[in-house]
Design a protein around this nucleic acid. Sequence first.
DNA 1: AGCGAAATGGAATATTTATTCCACAACGCT
DNA 2: AGCGTTGTGGAATAAATATTCCATTTCGCT
Lengths: 270, 270
Amino acid sequence: MQADLPPATVEEFHARLAASFESLPKRLRQCADYIAANSDRIAVSTVADLAAGADVPPSALMRFCQIIGFSGFSEMQKLFRDAYSPSLPDYGTRLENLKSGGAGSPARLLGEFIESGRLSLESLAKSVDEAALEQAVNLLAHAGTLHIVGYRRAFPVASYLSYVFEKLNIPAMLHDGAGKLDHAHALRSGDALIAITFAPYSAETLDLAATARARALPVVALTDHMASPLAQHASAILPVAEVDFGAFRALSATIALALALAVAVAAARE
Amino acid sequence: MQADLPPATVEEFHARLAASFESLPKRLRQCADYIAANSDRIAVSTVADLAAGADVPPSALMRFCQIIGFSGFSEMQKLFRDAYSPSLPDYGTRLENLKSGGAGSPARLLGEFIESGRLSLESLAKSVDEAALEQAVNLLAHAGTLHIVGYRRAFPVASYLSYVFEKLNIPAMLHDGAGKLDHAHALRSGDALIAITFAPYSAETLDLAATARARALPVVALTDHMASPLAQHASAILPVAEVDFGAFRALSATIALALALAVAVAAARE
DNA sequence: AGCGAAATGGAATATTTATTCCACAACGCT
DNA sequence: AGCGTTGTGGAATAAATATTCCATTTCGCT
């Protein structure tokens, strides 16, 4: 196993790490554990640092590197150092320039919104509950018509979902409150509801979710956290922590999540 | 100047770098230049690497470190190594995990959308035309009612803009084509139009832009590139290259740009 | 042009860091 | 329990890396 060529990419590294995990003795498994959880620090640490973190002597860590397929620690570190910052650097400096503009300048504002969007996406990547997502997909895949509700700042997301479902040939209905009509009666047995709302929660959205719930329809909630008032009506809760800048949020994470949900549902329906 | 304590944060470092730049001799200025543009690589490089990049001997780089206020290169590197990984690294590995899920798994899709959103934001940061943005803000700041048009996948952006303008107490009207009514007559002298469309361009949006143009109203275009058909009707063009994943795009960059535009207009109107 | 001060490059040295090696301990097998 | 195999920790060594120093050059000034 350890006579192989060294992993050529970070992905390959992780694959090999996972593969070898089973067969490792105690100390080396400690190494694998710690490295898997802290692979991002390999680029900026020394053997001694990592060994201390994994609570093993440096020599154990060296052996680990060799078993994974590297000639030694340095070769492994090189992989991570090279992989670091493929497109970031130019972006990072550019963003700094943007942000350093005059206090109210448009470019500066844009920089802030870009940054908060990026942070939101990162935070979503870190916090997503895969099980809840799968469950939501499951519920929606087996439903008839999908009803979508979201007002005020959730409305752009709701309308985009509606557009995407149309493109995907999935029957969906956007409850947009046009003409202040209440379309709650459109909820039929076998349908499902996707409800989107953030603090301050919109009463109309909560009402519709409650109605759906009362009729035993599955409700998938896109909301800001598990304790949202929407949660009590929901069969699956997808929390999205969006980072605000000033009074407004970029919605990046919410839209990414909504899109993934839609496309996964389409895939599951085939 | 160089007798100071070392910079305690990356920001402070950059400030000091900018401050000292003026007074540096040739070689040291080369160092400053290169380091400013590649500060993200300090954490993962050696003195020799960076010196080679800046095209100076290692000793020059050492002197540079000391002038900035560090005891030497190692101390400077430590600052960047500690700062490294505030959010990105964990994010990176997490994303890798997401993407490595089964081909059609929801989590994997989400990973892809998150990544394309992030790329879009980065690309926007790199490519934004600050002059065009300022001009757009200017036009909108001096207009009466702001008309907003965007159909299909541009509609979420348009509707969000409409929401934000309402919050900001700026008179705005969303042309959403409800009831297939044409509200072109609502365009009054002194108003301005924000038109949003991407390939394949929506005819309704182009029509309204042409109408506004014919009546000599300023038109701000959010579109995919300078050669878009919308461009010929526009007084200011804001191109946004959004990265698609599959048939869908996350709209992150477009929304960030729209938000910045809106908030900057509000600031300029005061 | 000539002088002193400042800057520079490269070679010598000090320090840190990686790597190897081996004596010893733990484990599994008969 | 005895024996070979495998795993382990630490000390010795090798390599890489940072840092200093100083002879030489460049620069600014009169």
